[in-house]
Design a protein around this nucleic acid. Sequence first.
DNA 1: TTAACATATGAGCCATTGTTCATATGTATT
DNA 2: AATACATATGAACAATGGCTCATATGTTAA
Lengths: 119, 119
Amino acid sequence: MENNLHNHDACCEAHTKVVEEVSKKLPDDEILYDVAELFKVFGDSTRVRIICALFEDEMCVCGIAEVLGMTQSAISHQLRVLKQARLVKYRREGKTVFYSLADTHIKTIFNQAFEHVME
Amino acid sequence: MENNLHNHDACCEAHTKVVEEVSKKLPDDEILYDVAELFKVFGDSTRVRIICALFEDEMCVCGIAEVLGMTQSAISHQLRVLKQARLVKYRREGKTVFYSLADTHIKTIFNQAFEHVME
DNA sequence: TTAACATATGAGCCATTGTTCATATGTATT
DNA sequence: AATACATATGAACAATGGCTCATATGTTAA
């Protein structure tokens, strides 16, 4: 929609400079979209719990399911999401598959998030 | 559902220790839920763009709307979400309301997120 | 008070998404 | 080959969520 042209009046006239400045400095939409997609992956309590579990140790799918008290299927679906976001990696050992974290930024991001919710 | 009891067999029998260890170290569900809620707020490209705009400067609602090319109503709705998450603060100046970031952790979280999506 | 502007909000619609259920794939053992 | 175990996946359903539209609230000026 292009309704954003409705108000070239007093307020916006006065702050045109700021608007222009910010418009230039804002990162590309594509990058911002990817950032949002990343946070969307973190924005589910099941996936948050999986990630926090993997902070401790690598784990097999049924192990994660047991810790979280959830179905193997549900966990597997969520691991797929985490895998597609390149947040976890896995290794096979016979029938079982062990998942672990694949990114160093996750810990930092989560630490800051924990600090925020603690206030 | 309690289907997580379906596999006290070979795999899980072997990794009982890990499961117990992780179960103990995992933060409270309430905290993990709050963390997920925080990321959920970050998990929308409109809100990401608003936050990034506010990294540069405080802005009025219609200014944000102009920068993002969106409706005043849409922006206002999203600012409400950000406000409820205690991520932005605001000050009135006559008819216009200026929003700015209210949290020091946001910058760190976003920097790490940017680094992740750049790889 | 009336009019104009800036922002906030409620209802409704459409799209997205997490879980379940059933089933498929992959691996090891007999 | 047949069975059992571990994991992956597709379909379907219910719930959530972002945007639009209409309207309400709040503020200033005439």
